[in-house]
């Protein structure tokens, strides 16, 4: 501290929600009088602002962690598909039939993001989500498992049936792929 020429110190508590473990330190090079009233008021404002900002970002993170619907695709996400899987499992003996799970990962998604940007990547995810949802039977569901992964639950399906549902979705994906239009050159 001395090396840097810092001679006075003021510490203000910073409250982040209920948590006040934090101290914001102001260091000064002057040796004269401690901070005056205006300085103290400014430091108080800065400490409050910092506390609020930290609190907000902590709350936002918490909300995202417990968020049950993906804002991008509108599909269930996070803890919800995981707990829904457990409920499906619990229902199995009562329903008298099992179910199939399918985990889908979009091919070369990272490349799309890198080459065309995240806005295009987001559109790809939204389009995939819409296509998957419209291909579902009543009662079956699809969730955004994370990143470019989607989880499908198909009731009363054997693994072969589920595989053919997925094959059908995959073939639609290929058929809908846009092709270059060949037009005569003027």
């Amino acid at each position: 501290m001395n090396k840097l020429g810092l001679r006075t110190y003021s510490g203000l508590p910073v409250s982040v929600g209920e948590d006040s473990r934090w101290v914001l330190a102001f260091l000064r090079q002057h040796r004269e009088s401690p901070h005056d009233a205006v300085d103290v008021a400014y430091m108080g404002l800065i400490a409050d602002w910092l506390g609020n900002a930290l609190h907000q970002s902590a709350q936002k993170e918490l909300l995202q962690r417990i968020a049950l619907t993906d804002p991008l695709t509108g599909l269930p996400t996070g803890a919800r598909p995981r707990s829904d899987c457990k409920s499906e499992r619990a229902r199995t003996p009562r329903d008298g039939h099992g179910f199939a799970l399918a985990l889908v990962d979009l091919d070369h998604f990272k490349m799309v993001n890198d080459r065309y940007g995240h806005a295009v990547g987001d559109e790809v995810l939204k389009a995939a989500a819409r296509r998957f949802e419209s291909g579902m039977r009543e009662g079956d569901w699809v969730a955004r498992w994370g990143g470019e992964e989607f989880l499908f639950v198909l009731h009363g399906s054997t693994v072969e049936e589920a595989a053919s549902v997925m094959e059908r979705l995959a073939s639609q994906a290929v058929r809908r792929r846009s092709r270059p239009v060949l037009a005569p050159f003027p």
Binding site: P93, H97, G98, H108, A162, L169
Partner: peptide
């Protein structure tokens, strides 16, 4: 855009 998928079935006994 194509995708890859892994599929498994959850039986009554699982």
């Amino acid at each position: 855009m194509s995708f890859s998928a892994g599929v498994a079935a959850f039986g009554v006994n699982d």
